[in-house]
Computed example of a mutant assay.
Amino acid sequence: MSTIHRTTMTPTKLELLTDWLPKQSWYVGDAQTPELVRAGGFRLDDPEGAVGIEFMVVVDTSAPEPVAYLVPMAYRGTALSDVPGEALIGTSEHGVLGTRWIYDGVHDPVVRARLRALLRGEAIPQHQNESDTPDPTVTVHGTDDGLDVHINRVLRPTEAAQEPSGRLVAGWTWPDGTAARGVLA
């Protein structure tokens, strides 16, 4: 099970994402420097214990209407080889673990494997901020035995009745405090 360390990261995840997010093809904002707030997410455990896996939802409040983004992230103690340059979100100094290479999870083989395991019902989503605590609000509707997994980068709320099978559904909170749920993958 993953351990959540109560420590500092320099730069923070939000600082790294503020620089990285506007450079992505799926970014729909027009601000060169988005104003990001944490809005939700969850973690998955790496059975080997080597890679930290977090699915973070951030909301960009710089636009007239806030936009929610899903950024799956891999935290590694060493750099990955054979990944495109845009896969690296950045590096950060972790107060306990030292230098962390933070990657966009869609390019990380461990993140992709654990997401497929979750969609097959073989992994348990973990609370984003608590060690060894399952997150029952993250649900899988049906199972997916296929290999093609699509990550929804820009999140849109859906009604519970509209949640299709074979989908990963989780919630986030808008800046005004309104709760939302939608299909993440």
Rank of each mutant, 00 (worst) to 15 (best):
A185N: 03
D82V: 09
V37C: 10
Y75P: 04
L70R: 12
A123Q: 08
Y75C: 08
E48C: 10
G146P: 11
A117G: 07
T12S: 15
N129P: 12
S81W: 04
R6C: 13
H141K: 14
D132M: 10
A31M: 03
P134T: 07
V169T: 00
P84G: 02
A79R: 07
A123L: 02
D108S: 00
G182W: 10
L119C: 00
R43Y: 02
R100L: 08
D30M: 11
V96E: 15
Y69A: 09
D144V: 13
D82H: 15
G146C: 13
G95N: 13
R120E: 11
T91E: 08
A39Q: 11
V57M: 15
E122I: 03
P164I: 07
F55D: 10
G121V: 03
R100Q: 06
Y69M: 08
L17N: 06
G77S: 01
G40D: 12
G49R: 04
R116Q: 14
W101E: 06
A50E: 15
L147C: 11
A123S: 07
L21M: 03
I124C: 10
S92T: 14
R116F: 10
R38K: 15
V71N: 11
E163L: 12
S92D: 07
T91Y: 06
H107A: 03
L44D: 01
R120H: 00
M56Y: 08
P34N: 07
T99D: 01
V59N: 04
G166P: 05
L80Y: 00
G171N: 07
L168Q: 01
S62I: 03
I102R: 08
T133L: 15
F42M: 09
G95S: 14
G95V: 13
W101L: 01
P34I: 07
R76T: 04
A79L: 10
A39K: 06
Y69F: 04
V51H: 06
L17G: 03
R120D: 06
T78S: 09
T7H: 12
T78F: 09
R181K: 11
V154E: 05
T178V: 09
F42L: 04
M73G: 12
Q24C: 00
R114T: 00
W20E: 06
M1V: 09
L16F: 03
G105M: 02
P64F: 05
A39N: 06
E93Y: 08
H141V: 14
T3P: 00
L119I: 08
V149T: 01
T33K: 15
I151D: 13
D135P: 08
E35M: 13
T61M: 09
Q162C: 12
D108V: 01
E65Q: 13
P47I: 04
L44G: 00
G146F: 12
D30W: 02
L155P: 02
